[in-house]
């Protein structure tokens, strides 16, 4: 099981809520390319089984393996946000970062032959468009720690409600 121990925010999907509709992919590809092409989306929906649907994007790992793997030092990680930047001048599309990513969150743009990944819509004032668009509220910009807090909180609330009954 792959894990991320990041302190950084990332876009997290709740598979209980996700219905696999792909709206996140449309929002992403439109924001980044101006067209509707889910192949160019930096968040990818997976329907692996009749009832399993979720979408996955960059987890902003600490000591990100993609950054370490890049032989041309084209990838750098923002120390404050954890977002990975691709230097299009240096990147030659070798795809070592794609191989290094445990989450399958990186792809090579077939047009530019450069690596692409989620930057949490750094270029859009409204923030991540996939989060804004998700009709089921399944996506959230959060950190693993905040997720854990929330899980604990929800668990306790559930127990209390059950006890009251």
């Amino acid at each position: 099981m792959t894990t991320s121990t990041s302190k950084y925010q990332y876009i997290c999907n709740d598979p209980e809520k996700c219905v696999g509709c792909q709206f996140c992919e449309y929002a992403c590809s439109f924001n980044k390319t101006g067209s509707f092409n889910v192949y160019r989306s930096r968040i990818r929906t997976v329907r692996a089984h009749e009832i399993v649907a979720a979408s996955i994007t960059c987890r902003t790992c600490e000591d990100a393996p993609c950054v370490l793997a890049c032989p041309r030092d084209a990838l750098t990680q923002d120390a404050e946000t954890g977002v990975i930047h691709v230097d299009a001048e240096r990147c030659d599309g070798c795809a070592w970062c794609v191989e290094a990513c445990d989450f399958g969150a990186i792809s090579i743009n077939p047009g530019t032959k450069r690596a692409e990944m989620c930057d949490q819509c750094a270029d859009n004032e409204e923030g991540p468009q996939c989060v804004k668009w998700c009709p089921k509220g399944a996506l959230e910009l959060t950190t693993p720690d905040r997720r854990a807090q929330k899980a604990r909180h929800e668990l306790i609330l559930e127990e209390v409600t059950a006890a009251k009954k």
Partner: peptide, 17 residues
């Protein structure tokens, strides 16, 4: 009940598994 899923591009999701 197990899960609710949707057709492609559907924000309703009516398929009750």
């Amino acid at each position: 009940a197990v899960k609710t899923v949707a057709c492609a591009g559907c924000p309703i999701a009516c398929e009750q598994m």
